Amino acid sequence: MSGHGFTSTFADDLEEYLTFKTSMGCYGASRIWYLKRFDQYCATTGRKVLNQATVEGWVTFQLLSQPISRSWMSYIRDFGPWARITGNADAYVLSEKWKAGFIPSQPYLLTQTEITLFFQAAARLVASSPWKWQAVAFFGLMHSCGLRTGEVRRLTPTDVNLNDGVIEVLASKGDRDRRLPLTGEIADILTECDTHSRRAFAQQRATFFVTSSGKPVSPAAVGVAFNRIWDQARLRRTSAGKRPRPYDFRHHFAYANLERWMTDGTDVNAMLPYLARYMGHASLDSTYYYVHTSPDFMNNFADITRKSELLLPEVGFA
């Protein structure tokens, strides 16, 4: 059995592929999880050749349980070219016809009242896990810096430079790095969180935010914590339509800046490159998405950060 538990004919190749991706700075439990699913499928069905029948057979099988999401297909599509380069000239590369189409999600537009109540509830969270002291810091980073959920989860203790008041977001989407300044308020919150974590785990944690066992928090755990805090704050949920998610703090970060610039008469087009760089976008197309996803966001966000004089919004914990 391999280090990751692979058992099929492709076990050694899958291990070497993951080692290669890690050497290129590409980490992530999601890739490993789906490749394990592929490995289990091959072991169960007796697939021994990396051909079209094997790859598309697994994709078809996987779609039965995940008919909507297709982002995971990129993992098996990337495995094919690697196999060719490393000696398997006949390895099949998943056709582009399986590529997921872009279906933009509709963000839940958080109000300032909801944000305030959420962080008040997060500060009072009763939990036996590290979320008790991590919740305000984790979601505060998303809110104050517009980070992706995965970027916060992957932060290491050395990435969070509390002495200089900056964080290093390394090897993020598109393998891009960026250094972001912290507000004094969020720096204090991170310092308090770090103090609790060091007391509980000493130097044994690989990431800044951890589970009760000291391991990195999973995407699912973030969603569970967010929903628990949202409900504890007695915030409204609709039975249909848009639902609040952790990622909506990132949307709020973008909307809050756009709203303030428009209100202040600042040239938004001139400011978009700065916002794009701060948020880690590869191009302005990604940043324009926040302008077009909700044409009525001006009305919904009329009360957000209007009085702030900062370039980027402070965290509203009051």
Rank of each mutant, 00 (worst) to 15 (best):
C193K: 15
F209V: 08
E56D: 04
L64V: 14
T9N: 12
F208G: 02
V49K: 06
R198W: 14
I115R: 15
L235D: 04
R70H: 13
S8M: 13
K242L: 11
L155P: 01
L147C: 03
T45D: 08
V210W: 10
L170Y: 03
G46W: 11
D188V: 10
C193W: 06
D264L: 05
Q204P: 03
K21W: 09
E16I: 15
L182D: 04
Q134L: 05
W82E: 12
P219K: 11
Y288V: 00
G184A: 09
Q120P: 01
G101K: 15
A206N: 11
E56H: 05
S144W: 10
T111V: 14
F201N: 08
L50K: 07
S213P: 11
A200H: 13
S218G: 03
Q204M: 12
A220W: 15
D296N: 05
F249P: 03
W72C: 02
E168Q: 12
R77F: 02
L64R: 14
T111F: 04
A270D: 10
P244G: 01
W261P: 00
L141P: 02
K99I: 08
S213H: 13
R277N: 04
A318M: 13
D296E: 02
N299L: 04
E114H: 05
A11D: 11
S95P: 03
T22D: 10
Q134E: 08
A137Y: 03
T305H: 09
R205E: 08
F201H: 11
A135P: 03
R37P: 00
P130V: 10
W58E: 04
F226Q: 14
F118R: 15
N88F: 04
D267R: 06
F10E: 11
A256M: 08
L190N: 06
F138C: 05
S23Q: 12
S308N: 07
D13A: 05
E151Q: 15
G150V: 12
A225E: 14
W82K: 11
L170C: 04
G140E: 00
I68M: 12
S105N: 13
V315E: 10
W261C: 03
K99T: 13
L275T: 00
K48P: 01
I186S: 02
F317K: 06
K132W: 08
R153N: 08
H251Q: 07
N227Q: 12
A254P: 01
A256Y: 05
